[in-house]
Design a protein around this nucleic acid. Structure first.
Lengths: 227, 227
DNA sequence: ACAATAGTGTCTATCAGACAATATCCT
DNA sequence: AGGATATTGTCTGATAGACACTATTGT
């Protein structure tokens, strides 16, 4: 059944690079900061270093499934919708052998990270790097580049549209929405500018917020995407 | 020397997917159209179909080098600077076995494609697909998606900056520049809008064009990128 | 009444897009 | 002179950013 070339060999008979996935799982914490989920490696390699969850891609799974499995196995969490960033393929990036890694990013609400065995570390908005609790020289592998690309991806996604990854619920006030966007973008936003930019993508629910001080705010929901 | 896990196995001992590269090599033809370099497969698989040049990545080469080798071996041309688009990883995308492909794009001046054994086919600006000379059902594999992504990448690159991939020479008139941009973007551009948009990235050489009918145009060159 | 937050009016600067007038060459 | 192309002036509409005023609640 297996395909064979004229010399009778299958594809797997030729030596070929191994392929891994690494996932930068981002979220926004209670205190309004972007954070990334890391774990301290207890593997047989690079043990003790901070790293992104990652794993080798198996023969019969897609990249997406491998990314979700990496999150489950390494930090006890299911991601949501991992997206490819790019392939890291430097010949010497892994001393164990020839390994390419497909970097992924996912951005999930903080509620999904309750039972995690990983560590959520805040990201410096300027450097786009996690702030490590100890000063032991950064992330393993090329994971600093992956985190940077992940932050860029998230910022891009939150530049235009209201909370596309549903970090907050279905109904929210403009102030709540603004807080999330400011956390992801790592910079403040003028409230009137923000409002006028976002309302075009929002529908009013007709209800008002309750129990807050000051004038109650209208509640909005995301307007269903018109194609 | 080789790393081994606790069970004494190397990375390569575990079955893992094969990895390939495919390259959409784009250029702009004399008649001002975007075109992609294809070849008719004479391989042992999918023979006779139009396809992008591609090859399997070897153990000791980077994606970039594999992409350049694919161009050399399949269409007799050296590319310039292939860039990753994304990984195509559907489980059934290749009947020969589990093969992921890292799609690449490159955009080179037409002069580099003189001795090619491939076929340059124009791209429909609307569909972003090559116009095949025969009506035999499209490209093999998922190469239609790759071409589409490649065109998107090229358009993005030519949205803002003057001819970043140096499809024309170092000195040019604004009309020459505009022709190239219109070819890549697949739509006309108003000359005064185009001019005012581009001059900020250009320096005048001080010379004028010669031998043309009408008022001679000033020559420009790209302003060295200020960081 | 007062504090606090929500929502809006309006001014400015910038920019893309479009039209058309003027400038300068070649034959 | 007349055709052809280059270059620039100017108008319009859209938009981001900023400031400040008005509106509506709880205490």
């Amino acid at each position: 059944m297996t395909w064979r070339d004229p010399s009778g060999r299958t594809l797997a008979d030729y030596p070929h690079p191994s392929i891994a996935v690494d996932v930068a799982l981002l979220t926004v914490t209670q205190d309004g900061r972007l954070a990334v989920l890391l774990h301290e490696r207890d593997e047989h390699y690079e043990a003790g270093r901070w790293a992104l969850p990652g794993t080798f891609v198996r023969m019969d799974e897609t990249l997406r499934d491998a990314a979700l499995r990496a999150l489950r196995e390494k930090v006890g969490e299911t991601g949501q919708e991992p997206r490819q960033l790019r392939v890291f393929d430097a010949l010497d990036r892994d001393d164990r052998g020839r390994v390419m890694s497909v970097a992924h990013v996912d951005l999930v609400p903080p509620g999904r990270l309750e039972g995690t065995t990983g560590t959520l570390l805040p990201i410096d908005p300027e450097t786009r790097q996690p702030i490590l609790p100890d000063r032991q020289g950064g992330l393993g592998f090329d994971h600093d580049q992956i985190v940077e690309a992940a932050v860029e991806w998230a910022r891009d996604a939150y530049q235009e549209r209201p909370d596309p990854r549903h970090l907050i619920g279905e109904e929210f006030t403009l102030l709540e929405l603004q807080r999330v966007h400011e956390a992801v973008l790592g910079r403040p936003w003028q409230k009137d500018t923000f409002r006028r930019h976002m309302v075009q993508y929002l529908d009013e629910t007709g209800d008002l917020s309750r129990g807050t001080v000051g004038k109650p705010a209208r509640l909005f929901r995301r307007r269903p995407q018109q194609i």
